[in-house]
């Protein structure tokens, strides 16, 4: 039985909890959240013990899963690594590059299993596209476009709206795409970005990022917390012998449309992409198996560092109006 402790019991904590509960060889031994009320409600819902303190949690678990807001990742990750625990940490790795460095150094020093949870790599559409591009399906890649977003995310304490805590749409949202691009196309030479992040608009954030890759490809990433039309992602990878594209708004496996009041009132449409295994499960299962077998997780702490470094360079570009070389 692998004993897991979850820190941070918001949306992502619950998502991870559901994934672990589907693993017969994993037990979520305790959970922790600095909001005592939220921790109690979570514990009741899932019949799991609330740890009295971080040390209590560390004492009773082999694997620590960090699902707190970004700005608190390092605060929990560092003591967990120090205590020799295997740590899976939500993306982005940390809010600042300094915190990322601390985490990288701690992992290196203690040589503990660590994985930044870039779950996008376990979404079948992105995973399939990655492998196709790697296998040369589109030839040499010339241009890549990716889009992610919807309306502004709401969370307890509204931390997404606090740039100091979340890093805005670049660090919080399109880090998914930046990681996928680094994973799939390799290193970035230069980044240039525009963003609404610093305009002091309430609950609106938007960015357009251009990337020049070392292999000569040009990338474009759009991130939006400005689109009331619902959460949508898309991407296309154009190469000298073909193109791959995906658009969540066009490829919809299941869609239900219902009237709000069962009668003639305004309706709601909810698209779905049902699958036997969800990406969060696959991601966490991979990490648990690495912990159990001693394998190295396929997403390394350096990958987490590089994604944050690229995102922060894009933020710097948006702030200064300059192109940032990496």
């Amino acid at each position: 039985m692998t004993k897991v402790g979850i820190i941070g019991l918001g949306t992502m904590g619950a998502q991870h909890m559901d994934a672990y509960r589907a693993m017969p060889d994993v037990e979520v031994t305790a959970v922790y959240d600095h909001h005592a009320e939220r921790a109690q409600a979570f514990a009741q819902k899932y019949s799991v013990r609330v740890a009295e303190s971080l040390n209590d949690l560390l004492d009773h678990c082999e694997v620590i899963d960090i699902c707190t807001p970004t700005y608190r990742h390092a605060e929990y990750a560092l003591p967990a690594i120090e205590a020799g625990k295997a740590v899976v940490c939500e993306k982005p790795l940390a809010r600042t590059l300094e915190d990322c460095e601390r985490i990288v150094n701690a992992v290196k020093q203690r040589n503990t299993p660590f994985m930044p949870a870039h779950v996008l790599r376990f979404f079948p559409e992105y995973r399939t596209a990655h492998h196709l591009v790697q296998s040369g399906a589109v030839g040499t890649v010339a241009a890549v476009r990716m889009r992610r977003g919807g309306d502004f995310p709401r969370a307890k304490s509204d931390w997404y709206a606090d740039f100091g805590k979340s890093g805005g749409v670049i660090l919080d949202l399109i880090i998914h795409d930046l990681d996928w691009l680094l994973w799939t196309l390799g290193a970035v030479e230069r980044v240039y970005a525009k963003a609404l992040t610093f305009r002091n608009l309430t609950h609106l954030d938007y960015t357009l990022v251009t990337l020049k890759f070392k292999n000569g490809a040009v990338g474009h990433v759009e991130g939006t917390w400005c689109d009331p039309g619902g959460f949508k992602v898309n991407f296309e990878v154009c190469g000298d012998s073909g193109m791959l594209e995906y658009d969540s708004a066009r490829q919809v496996a299941l869609q239900i449309a219902t009237r709000a009041d069962g009668g003639t009132g305004g309706g709601v449409q909810v698209p779905e992409s049902p699958a036997t295994q969800n990406p969060y499960y696959l991601e966490l299962r991979h990490f648990i198996e690495c912990v159990q077998t001693g394998q190295t997780p396929e997403i390394t702490v350096e990958d987490g560092y590089n994604a944050v470094r690229l995102a922060l360079a894009a933020i710097e570009s948006a702030q200064t109006g300059r192109a940032i070389a990496l």
Partner: peptide, 23 residues
């Protein structure tokens, strides 16, 4: 204007890929 260009589509002495950012 800020722009990035590339030639990975046709590998010629001209840009086949271009991404402009404008203010």
């Amino acid at each position: 204007v800020y722009a990035e260009t590339g030639n990975n589509m046709f590998h010629g002495a001209f840009d086949d890929t271009a991404m402009l950012t404008m203010t």
